[in-house]
Amino acid sequence: MANLYPGRKRRNAIWIALAWAATAFGLGWLVLILGALLLKGFGGLSIDVFTKMTAPPGVAGGLLNSIVGSVIQTLLGLVISAPLGILAGTFLAEYGRYTRFAAIVRFINDILLSAPSIVVGLFVYEFCVVPFGHFSGLAGGVALAVISTPIIVRTTEDMLGLVPNTLREAASALGMPRSLVIQRVAYRAVRAGLVTGILLAIARMTGETAPLIFTALGNSLFTADPTQPMSSLPLIIYEFARSPYPEQQKLAWTGALIVTLTVLSLSIFARVISSSRSASR
């Protein structure tokens, strides 16, 4: 018995060391990637980036049209996905909570949540580009909406699931109809949670590239017209990162830094909101 102990202890030490190593490995990548972004992208940050258009090689340019395109398409996506996602999430949590139909929708929504975004791009191409005959920022927005809706559905349902039933019962006992119980009581109780879902959706949309390649296509000129092909930050990173010209590569890195900082600060902000709420409960 006694002579087993050193062996067990040694094996334990080895596995614990491996777990530490795995964590160091994971954190190491984060440091390497963020470090590279700061190193390569920070130097390019200037007023020009935010005030000038993307330019052909040799001409000093910025990222203005891409930034505006990103914002417009994200807003378009949000206008579609936020109401749709919140309503669908409401059905799953309130009206249909224990029904078979809701179980199916929940299952399908979870699959859409991690479905390959490139496939979503193909779908929107067939659905929004082919019928109109040309690429457009609107199609890009629709593609982003398809990607972000499942996120909002999921967070809305999860958050409404946390509302204590006694709250709903109290409201119903006062004679409030069901729809008002949901809108005036349940939504109000989980407002922070709904905002979290929307922030996470925006974060996801900001970084998406694959579904935009053949929906919004990209545009080297400034446009705020959603029926025209539209540029966006991820698309311009995709284009410029493969460019042979150093100034375009530099802009790609600056764009990458902007996108990453936006996405990460949105997701950290979302986390802060939701955790400060759960702490107060």
Binding site: L37, Y238, S267
Partner: peptide, 14 residues
């Protein structure tokens, strides 16, 4: 979790 939040295009350029 931040590692999961970094968009895939960033992994690409990096």
């Amino acid at each position: 979790e931040l590692l999961a939040g970094i968009p895939s295009i960033i992994y690409g350029i990096w």
